[in-house]
Amino acid sequence: MTGAASSWRLLRTWAVSPELAMGLDEVLLDQVGSPPTLRFYTWEPDTLSLGYFQRFAEVPATAQATRVVRRLTGGGAIHHAGELTFSIAADAAHPLYRGPVAPSYERVHAVVIDALGRHGVSAALRRADAVTSDVAGTGMCFHASTPLDIVWDEAKGVGSAQRRRRGRVLHHGSIKLAASHLETGVARAPQVSPADLADTLLAQMTEQWHGRFDEDDPTADELARAQVLGAATCAEAFLRRR
């Protein structure tokens, strides 16, 4: 990607609570003017996240979910189990995000497709192709595909969404590695662990974006703020706001 060379902050936060999963992403979204940040994470326990505008009642899987949270990003619900989740927070002026939304997806998805390919997964953008994973009435992200989504085995395997707020952009990605009883019929890549796929993605981003990724940990202040913001995204009033 032309002009993307930059210094990145890299966070790996494995097995985080739903509060910390969402809260830390919101902290990173609010850091306008800070370096772009790439974060990899997994959830503990498994959690169902609603899209920002989704109606609670339109997602039947909420009744079976261990925990439920509402994301800041839009789109459908996701069951975060057996997956690698990543987020990319950067200023809207960053070359990754400058311009329309669609090309920014293509830039991110190009490295995800290449990384999956390194693990033997023949992933590609769906474009105009039909997939078998589209199912009406579940409200699940993986059951509703768009031309920009990443698919393999004729099914959607990566869920993506963005939030654009006050000059900063947060891109969420969920890469399915294992089957979920709340998201049947979707693609998955069981041959790779979340940590190994994160390493491969990092290598692809370093190579293709000419970036330098500096390993870091969330600060105590960021964690404290994330807990407060994250608790709000799990609060009953916010979950049932629609």
Partner: peptide, 15 residues
């Protein structure tokens, strides 16, 4: 922020 607008792939604030 006085509102929000959602497209298929992004939610954006209205300022």
């Amino acid at each position: 922020t006085f509102g929000e607008i959602e497209s298929v792939k992004a939610v954006a604030d209205l300022n």
